[in-house]
């Protein structure tokens, strides 16, 4: 009986929405940089599925439908950029330089740390595209000869770690400039970071959107130069 309900797409969608809305409501008054509703809601979903023994394949019937909206939502970031063009004026050079340096550091640090820690070649290559959106990372798989599933996993884990670490660093260094906050979030943790930046403010969201776009372009260029030419 329960199986016939949980296998419906509505189950996954309802569980996700409820977990997110409850987490957001509960965390509204918690002023900690690590109180992230996306992470908390995900942990709640995982815990519910593990405790009840509901297969993740059932949950993903609805989850896949929600995931299909990630690409249109990413494209809609253009609306946020358009609405905040005035606040971005004069900040295009810092965004371009910051995102280019960030993309370079992301790739260089993965190569160096992988050698240092003796990470396998397939994991190393699957980490190279960790700071770009999933759509771009998937397109780069033939270039880097990485594993598709691990590439997606790397992008997601990077997004989560960026949304957890980023606000801590911003608080530690007392960074109040909204454009700076957005550039750092978008470059280091792509769309997941941008969704967090939007919670901080519209300027942060717009700067983060432009930064993730520039990071994507620079990463594609660098990886093509490294592995294709």
């Amino acid at each position: 009986m329960i199986d016939t309900i949980t296998v419906l797409p509505e189950f996954g969608i309802t569980l996700t929405l409820l977990a997110y809305l409850v987490s957001r409501r509960v965390l509204r008054n918690v002023h900690s940089p690590i109180a992230n509703p996306i992470v908390v809601a995900s942990l709640v979903c995982i815990a519910i599925l593990r405790v009840t023994g509901i297969p993740i394949s059932h949950y993903q019937q609805g989850g896949d439908l929600l995931m299909m909206l990630i690409l249109p939502a990413t494209i809609c970031l253009a609306v946020m950029v358009y609405e905040n063009l005035d606040s971005l004026k004069g900040n295009y050079l810092p965004i371009a330089v910051g995102s280019t340096v960030g993309a370079f550091v992301s790739i260089a640090s993965v190569l160096l740390l992988s050698k240092l820690f003796g990470l396998s070649l397939i994991l190393e290559r699957s980490l190279l595209t960790k700071s770009v959106t999933t759509a771009i990372a998937i397109e780069l798989v033939p270039v880097t000869s990485a594993d598709l599933s691990i590439v997606v996993m790397s992008v997601i884990i990077t997004g989560i770690s960026g949304t957890l670490i980023g606000p801590v660093i911003l608080r530690l260094f007392k960074v109040k400039n909204p454009v700076l906050q957005g550039i750092a979030m978008g470059t280091s943790s792509h769309v997941i970071g941008t969704s967090r930046a939007m919670e901080l403010g519209k300027q942060q969201g717009a700067a983060s959107s432009v930064a993730l776009f520039v990071t994507g372009l620079v990463t594609v260029g660098m990886l093509l130069a490294l592995y294709h030419i």
């Binding site: 929405l17 509703p37 979903c45 939502a73 997606v152 996993m153 997004g159 769309v191 969704s195 967090r196």
Partner: peptide
């Protein structure tokens, strides 16, 4: 879409755990 963008990342995170 932008207001509820965060919701869209919950299924891939759950998938990663699996």
């Amino acid at each position: 879409l932008l207001a509820y963008m965060g919701v869209l990342f919950i299924p891939p995170i759950v998938d990663v755990a699996d």
